[in-house]
Computed example of a mutant assay.
Amino acid sequence: MKKFMLFIAGLIALFVLLANLGPMILLGVSVWLLYIVFKQFIKSDSTAGKIGWVIAGLLILSIAFANIYAVIGVGAAYVLYVIYKQWQDEKHDDDIIVPSKTEDPFTNFEKQWAEMKNY
């Protein structure tokens, strides 16, 4: 049942991610443009040029901050990543060898070795 719920949550997160892919691309372009504006601001020698680059940077920054759907898409991508990691951890839990209760002195060693191998 747990894997089914993880699958359903992952499917929902995937759909949310795909629905918000456009705004996420716009956010990435906005961040890239902000980087370019910052580099040009640093290169500029004149006060008027610096003021112009600050105005351009504030305009691009307002576009980036107004794009809340991109933040939702990034959150969905993170949820999808967490679900993937959880799914992978469940696969490795099946690989642990549980030794039987015997008089063998190496039983505890084999159990600890199996646990260390999974980390």
Rank of each mutant, 00 (worst) to 15 (best):
I36Y: 07
N20S: 10
S46Y: 11
P99Y: 08
V54L: 15
T47W: 09
K85Y: 09
T107E: 10
E115T: 08
F65T: 14
P23N: 04
K43P: 02
L11T: 08
I96P: 01
S62H: 13
F109T: 10
K117Q: 11
I97T: 13
G52P: 00
D104E: 09
I72V: 14
I97P: 03
V82H: 06
I55N: 11
P23Q: 04
F106R: 12
V98N: 02
I25N: 03
Y69V: 02
M24Y: 03
V31N: 06
P23H: 04
I68C: 03
G57Y: 02
P105R: 07
L58T: 12
N67M: 14
S46K: 13
G22Q: 09
Y81F: 14
K111D: 05
G28I: 06
T102Q: 12
I51C: 09
I68N: 04
Q86Y: 07
I72Q: 07
K101E: 06
N108F: 05
Q40I: 14
F15Q: 12
K91S: 01
I96W: 02
K111N: 09
Q88L: 15
A70R: 09
L80Q: 05
K3N: 06
I97S: 13
I25M: 10
F41W: 15
I8P: 00
M5Q: 09
I25S: 04
A9E: 08
V37A: 10
V16Q: 12
A114V: 05
Y78W: 04
K101T: 05
W32R: 10
P105C: 08
G10V: 00
L34V: 05
Q112V: 03
N67R: 13
T102D: 12
F41D: 12
S62Y: 12
V37R: 09
L58N: 10
F41M: 15
T102P: 05
L61M: 12
G49M: 03
N118A: 09
V79Y: 03
K91V: 01
F106I: 08
I83E: 02
D45P: 03
A19R: 10
I8Y: 05
F15C: 14
V54G: 08
Q40Y: 10
Y119E: 13
M5R: 10
G57V: 02
L61N: 05
G22H: 09
L61I: 06
E115K: 15
P23E: 04
L14K: 01
V71E: 07
W32M: 13
D93C: 00
I25Q: 06
L6D: 07
K50D: 11
F4E: 10
Q112K: 06
K2F: 13
N118C: 02
A48L: 04
I12R: 02
I68L: 11
F109K: 14
W53A: 03
A77N: 07
L59M: 12
L18S: 09
D95M: 00
I25E: 05
G75K: 00
K50C: 14
K3Y: 03
Y78G: 02
N118K: 05
A76H: 03
N67Y: 11
D94L: 01
A56V: 15
K39A: 14
G57T: 00
A13C: 05
M1V: 09
L27K: 07
P105K: 08
A66L: 14
K50T: 13
M5P: 01
S44G: 11
P23Y: 04
L59T: 13
G57D: 00
I60C: 14
K39N: 07
